[in-house]
Design a protein around this nucleic acid. Structure first.
Lengths: 134, 134
DNA sequence: AAACATATGTTAGATTATCTGACATGAAAT
DNA sequence: ATTTCATGTCAGATAATCTAACATATGTTT
């Protein structure tokens, strides 16, 4: 378990390769990054470089998307802090609102989507990149 | 062991990444390709795409280079057909010459370089890319 | 139904990464 | 003293990727 973590987080793959490997569009991949589901590294020249872990995560996301889960659901699953671009002033109110929502509506939302998603047990904590390496 | 071969031959890495991973210059990598030591795939747009096996091979080559073996030696080791760009007319004579050389000088060359190279037993038939993946 | 939000497509213009081919060069071989 | 080898470096061309903006289909709210 030592260097394995390092290896799996090593930034190696261009977005073109990741598109092929995941069957996602560049737009989708960038959109998921925008929503902080992944955080690929960058070259000096600002090109994205993805790790095995990034690709695994994208495969998981794709899985969820294919099963009808939306961004909000996926964010909940990965507990990514909600709220994308709100002014500091709005934030307080938004936070309050969110808290009010979270016990009622959010639970409902999650339950609905997860149940609808059907089978759902990725026992391993990573996607299917193992396909590509032994 | 089925898909493992496929996986190790899957073209995934840009030359920039391979440079970092192998600590070879782009010039060197292209030069070794020119001498048919590796044959990386290409994108539609003609950019090189390297596989794990390509990278392993480059690491081996680097090893040999570091130990003072020259192209000719490396080519012999991988038995890459010699002769780069000779006219058909010249080829006949060249072929004869080569055969005359091969039993005397070539053996000498090989022995000299291999012995000088010292320890030399990569038991596995691949380089150190295993470092990067589990 | 109308208005809005979400997720993705598409296009444009800019920039980076890579390509080939040529010339330069120090070290090694002849 | 020349050649050859292995690599560096540069120039000009092309491909891959980037961000930002607008377009849009589908789903959600009011």
């Amino acid at each position: 378990m030592g260097g394995s973590e390092i290896r799996r987080n090593m930034p190696l793959f261009s977005i073109g390769i990741v598109m092929q490997l995941t069957d996602l569009s560049a737009r989708q991949i960038r959109y998921y990054e925008e929503h902080e589901l992944i955080s690929p590294a960058r070259t000096e020249g600002n090109k994205r470089l993805f790790s095995l872990n990034d690709i695994d995560k994208l495969l998981e996301i794709k899985d969820l998307i294919d099963q009808g889960v939306n961004m909000a659901g996926i964010k909940q699953i990965y507990n990514v802090k909600q709220q994308t671009a709100i002014s500091a002033a709005e934030k307080k109110q938004a936070e309050k609102t969110r808290r009010e929502l979270s016990d009622a509506d959010l639970r409902k939302l999650l339950r609905k989507e997860l149940l609808q998603a059907g089978r759902f047990n990725r026992s391993a904590n990573h996607g299917d990149m193992s396909r590509f390496f032994h």
